[in-house]
Write a protein that binds this DNA or RNA. Structure first.
Length: 398
DNA sequence: TCTGGGGTCCTAGGACCC
DNA sequence: TCTGGGGTCCTAGGACCC
């Protein structure tokens, strides 16, 4: 039997309004109604909107208060991230049952390289059809699929197919598909780059493709200019890379009311450090660089980072470095709306370590983790935090 | 409209060394 | 005498994505 050439071996699978669909699966009364999942407080934003809500102008990242105003019968559901992580694992194991070459792009989307299935399927599109039907049957969740020669085109195809659809961009038909699209559809073109392109009179992918690449490099930087020019011609050589070890891990929070007092800010930093160290130990990571992030009431955001003498995952080490970094930030003139802390330059905590002086603190931290797992996050707090937690909750800060 | 929380990647400048 | 050049590490900020 003669088979069609398997010329579009890359799939992009993207779940449709993922958080909303997980909530709907567990609560059928949410079906067919405009639903938004996200923060419900004064400063909450939409994380995921149903298509009924989108029809009323609701989009993700939009302030929830504004979304409610746009859509009077909007059903607002607060997020249940543990549930979404579980659903994500279920979805990804379906992907991996087709090929080991699965690259997660986020909690609800992945690239699949299915070149290895060419002997089992006549057309890569059939794999997409099968994946979509298994997603429905085994998880109850809808997903859209793009099929193309490379990752970039596959992702554009799945976007175009949404909701609950499949689209193949056939080899040879790429430019025809691509050139009428607005530049904002390209991967890497956000507000700043589309404004820069607009200044050059470029609004469509076709216009971008016929611009001199030197002009693009001059105005957008060498890397961005080259990349966008290539994308405009459908060129994207990035392989599907299943190795997805995290490069950083962080905790941050925006407060319902701004924090005006340094000791409160330090207390929040400590709380974040305890949480961060727990997460790092759970995934078996140490970090070498600690980063602190502060966003002021006027939304100006500053970062401070410090390379530590030794990698760590204890809350104590992180807090000590974090307080030193915080000392370098002028907190007296403006109130603070967000405090964050993170670690980068991660390594596995099973790696051999020289320092022994940290062990006792690791034991303390492990004990704290265990109590948290058994009794919840509020059960054990460092003394400094326990002293201030009352004043924090009085301020309505969660 | 007044902007979450979790990430990745790029650029640019200064320190430092040879 | 007022002045090199390259490489590497570190840091801050910003753009972007879901």
């Amino acid at each position: 039997m003669k088979r069609a050439p398997f010329t579009e071996p890359i799939l992009h699978v993207d779940m449709d309004s993922f958080f909303v669909e997980v909530e709907r699966r567990d609560d059928p009364s949410l079906r067919d109604r405009p639903v938004a999942v996200g923060g419900t407080g004064d400063r909450g934003v939409v994380a995921s909107a149903s298509y009924e809500a989108r029809a009323n102008g609701v989009t993700s990242a939009m302030p929830m208060r504004y979304a409610r105003r746009l859509c009077r019968d909007l059903v607002v559901v607060s997020a249940h991230h543990a549930k979404y992580r579980q659903a994500s694992e279920d979805v990804f194991s379906i992907f991996r049952s087709f090929t080991p070459l699965v690259e997660g792009a986020s909690i609800d989307e992945a690239f699949l390289d299915i070149s290895g299935l060419r002997l089992h399927y006549e057309d890569p599109e059939q794999v997409g059809v099968e994946i979509r039907s298994r997603l429905r049957a085994e998880t109850g969740l809808p997903g859209s699929v793009g099929v193309a020669r490379n990752k970039f085109l596959a992702k554009l195809a799945s976007e175009t197919a949404k909701p609950d659809g499949l689209l193949k961009v056939a080899a040879g038909a790429e430019v025809e598909f691509l050139h009428p699209l607005p530049v904002t559809r390209l991967w890497g073109v956000g507000a700043a780059t589309s404004a820069a392109l607009e200044r050059l009179g470029i609004a469509t992918v076709g216009a971008l493709a016929s611009a001199p690449v030197e002009t693009l490099r001059r105005h957008l930087g060498s890397t961005m200019g080259t990349m966008l020019y290539d994308l405009a011609w459908g060129k994207d050589e990035r392989p599907v890379d299943p190795d997805g070890a995290a490069k950083s891990i962080s905790v941050e929070q925006t407060y319902e009311q701004d924090l005006a007092d340094r000791s409160l800010i330090e207390a929040e930093l400590l709380r974040h450090c305890v949480k961060l160290s727990g997460r790092m130990r759970r995934v078996g990571k140490l970090g070498k660089v600690l980063a602190v992030k502060v966003r002021f009431a006027d939304f100006e955001t500053v970062h401070r980072r410090l390379t530590l003498a030794d990698s760590t995952n204890t809350g104590r080490d992180m807090f000590r470095a974090g307080v030193a970094l915080l000392a370098d930030i002028d907190l007296d003139r403006r109130a603070v709306r967000l405090v964050g802390v993170g670690m980068t330059d991660l390594s596995d905590s099973t790696a051999p370590r020289q320092l022994t002086t940290h062990h006792e603190w690791e034991n303390v931290a492990d004990a704290v983790d265990q109590v948290h797992r058994r009794f919840g996050d509020q059960a054990v707090l460092p003394a400094r935090l326990a002293a201030t937690s009352e004043s924090i909750s009085e301020r309505g800060v969660s």
